[in-house]
Design a protein around this nucleic acid. Structure first.
Lengths: 144, 144
DNA sequence: ATACCTGCAAAGTCTTTGCCTTAGG
DNA sequence: CCTAAGGCAAAGACTTTGCAGGTAT
């Protein structure tokens, strides 16, 4: 089981296998997502210095769409107006702690206690492709 | 501990205590939220036959805002473009199972396994007013 | 060569606000 | 009577798409 952060080549290989072309924008997007380990919005990505210089926001948007289709990234809600995107890393699951005041998002280190329930739900309800999102919201120490 | 669904008078009393005026729109909004036990979007509420006849969408929006401020309802993400709103019922916590294909949302009956972790996070991180949202996503049997 | 990708600009969708009028307490 | 609440319409915020031209394979 691969627990550690993949490098961008791993992800780009996966992209190519899924039928995506290796464009400059795709490479840069993947690297940007890998650099930050918490989810990012479309705006954050499109305005990131590296990406802003080489492609349009619409391109980032369409890349994200394709990567979601291919199961390489996931779109998260996270309680904000804008959607967040995060790489799906095999063998890893992330839950988040979010400050409702300043909007800070940090991944939670502790083990996720939900997997048993997830299996139970899969069995009882007949839902397929089950996954979950768990977010904690509160006021962070700086905002208190 | 009050586990059962309150009636609209209970909620309206709470509203009045919080300083809200008892308007027709507020009464109707509360009743509409109580009728459906899963979260609703602004559009669903504003277009609901009962509410559509007596008030404008902006009114519903502003009522929802005030009710959130007063801690009477909560805004949820739920992975859709639109925000969802749900009454906060004392002593009750809801997690959701959401079909990524048809968008169906159903509350989960099983006990939520997250409360212990929530306490641990509160202690370790110093976050205040902590609460969480847990959603399961998958393809429902009808959509499979 | 050709199917996929991109930029630009415009259109959508949902939310939020301003301003003036109405009505609860 | 005085201030919160409501209606209407316009502006914002974020996302999504059409089309013409560019590029990886």
């Amino acid at each position: 089981m691969q627990q550690n952060k993949p490098n961008s080549e791993d992800v780009l290989t996966q992209c190519k296998k899924s039928g995506l072309r290796r464009t400059k924008a795709l490479q840069c997007l993947v690297e940007t997502l890998l650099t930050k380990d918490s989810p990012m919005t479309l705006a954050e990505l499109a305005e990131h210095p590296d990406l802003a210089d080489i492609c349009d926001r619409a391109t980032v948007f369409r890349l994200l769409q394709r990567l979601i289709e291919k199961g390489i990234i996931r779109r998260l809600g996270l309680h904000e107006r804008a959607a967040y995107f995060t790489l799906l890393i095999p063998g890893r699951h992330q839950d988040f702690l979010i400050c409702t005041s300043c909007g800070d998002i940090e991944p939670i280190k502790a083990a996720c206690p939900v997997h048993a329930l997830e299996k139970e739900i899969a069995t009882k309800t007949g839902y397929a492709n089950l996954y979950h999102e768990l977010e904690f919201f509160g006021t962070c120490p700086q905002c208190c």
